[in-house]
Design a protein around this nucleic acid. Structure first.
Lengths: 214, 214
DNA sequence: TGCACTATTTCAGCGAGTGCAATTTCTGTG
DNA sequence: CACAGAAATTGCACTCGCTGAAATAGTGCA
């Protein structure tokens, strides 16, 4: 990744890697995201309408929904269409690691991929504590991702000689727990000022060290 | 209009314990729930409007929303206002059990409290597999319950001499994982024809036996 | 420069969910 | 039994999230 995809640059140093079109798209997406977070931080989730966000970002409400599946998604910054990509990564990881660790590696990558703008995080922290319902981390497409991963995992478990009935259930449990830990990491990252991967590591550390038995 | 919303009981054997008012309320609630599940099973979640459900249950759409927080809630049969009650139960359990087991006991009670009409469950099974987004088990008020329980748990952990910073995080993790396992149990109960408590026990069994290390 | 492609916009509309005020239905009391 | 008060149900009007379709504008490429 080239050094600077961020608001620092006033005019356009022409090239970064992907077309001008794509960068512009990114910019407006980021603009909407920022607008959403800022407005929600100030007025509260329900008080903010999509129209406000769109106006503040300088787009129509329709383009808002062209970029984000839902209002929550915009606030959380969740971009759609990651499911397939993730399941491929998971398949790759399964070659070299146990199901649990493979899943962890993938999830950790996801967290690491989320840009860590400290100012934005500060705002998000505010938002998340005031709007607990956002902790679902996007009901919508997350489920899709989950079932995708369960699919891949149970395949892997079958190959290791597990009984087909159990494989699916075990896969489901592992994924559910994996996501639960990820959510905890999210929460931690919000309440303290931690970056996501560190928070994730901390959670795993606590979980693996005896916490299960508490 | 009192024609006949209920198949089971032709007339009213007068007393059961709570007032006539309350029983009627229950009846209509169940009627709505059934209607919701049946319609969604047949036509799919998005194709079914609240108006359809309400009409089929013989009520106005307005009363529908007097009973259910949301359309999902009606399909899942999630009744609001359980948060306080649960946290009290949890507090009681904490007197006699470890945080983890206390939480498990409470959650198991919740599952056991959900009536196990086999016909309804069969329908739900259909619905859940066709509408994966419902697996969130109600984004809305569930979160409220969660944070309530986290609160109680972290208090308990403080009393046991944990450091305040860790207490909250650990509580959050325990609750998240606890709910994750519950969700798995839900899934299991749907895909096989299991009743909820059995499914829950099975999940715990698998989880506690080495699954964590997989 | 011109053509194909795609992001954006406008517009019209559906359906979920809410507040309010009117009305009906139960319950406890004298 | 009658009656007052509580609670449940309802109709109505309204806001807002979200979508489809078609028109328009902006970009990348030959």
């Amino acid at each position: 990744m080239p050094p600077d995809p961020l608001p620092g640059s006033p005019d356009d140093p022409p090239e970064d890697g992907l077309g001008l079109r794509e960068t512009k798209k990114r910019q407006t997406r980021i603009a909407m995201h920022r607008a959403a977070v800022e407005l929600v931080a100030e007025h509260g989730f329900t008080q903010v309408t999509v129209e406000m966000i769109a106006r503040k970002a300088g787009v129509s409400t329709r383009t808002f929904f062209n970029h984000w599946v839902t209002k929550d998604a915009a606030v959380l910054g969740v971009v759609p269409g990651e499911a397939v990509q993730l399941s491929q990564q998971l398949r790759a990881q399964l070659e070299v690691a146990s199901p649990r660790d493979a899943l962890r590696a993938v999830l950790r990558d996801v967290l690491a991929g989320i840009p860590a703008d400290p100012e934005l995080r500060e705002l998000k922290k505010l938002v998340m504590t005031k709007e607990p319902h956002l902790h679902t981390i996007s009901s919508g497409n997350l489920i899709e991702v989950q079932s995708e991963l369960v699919e891949v995992l149970s395949e892997g478990m079958l190959d290791e000689g597990m009984e087909p009935e159990d494989a699916r259930l075990c896969a489901a449990i592992v994924v559910q727990v994996g996501f639960a830990l990820t959510r905890s990491a999210f929460g931690l990252s919000m309440t303290r000022g931690l970056d996501l991967p560190s928070a994730y590591d901390r959670v795993l550390e606590l979980y693996d060290g005896g916490l299960r038995e508490v």
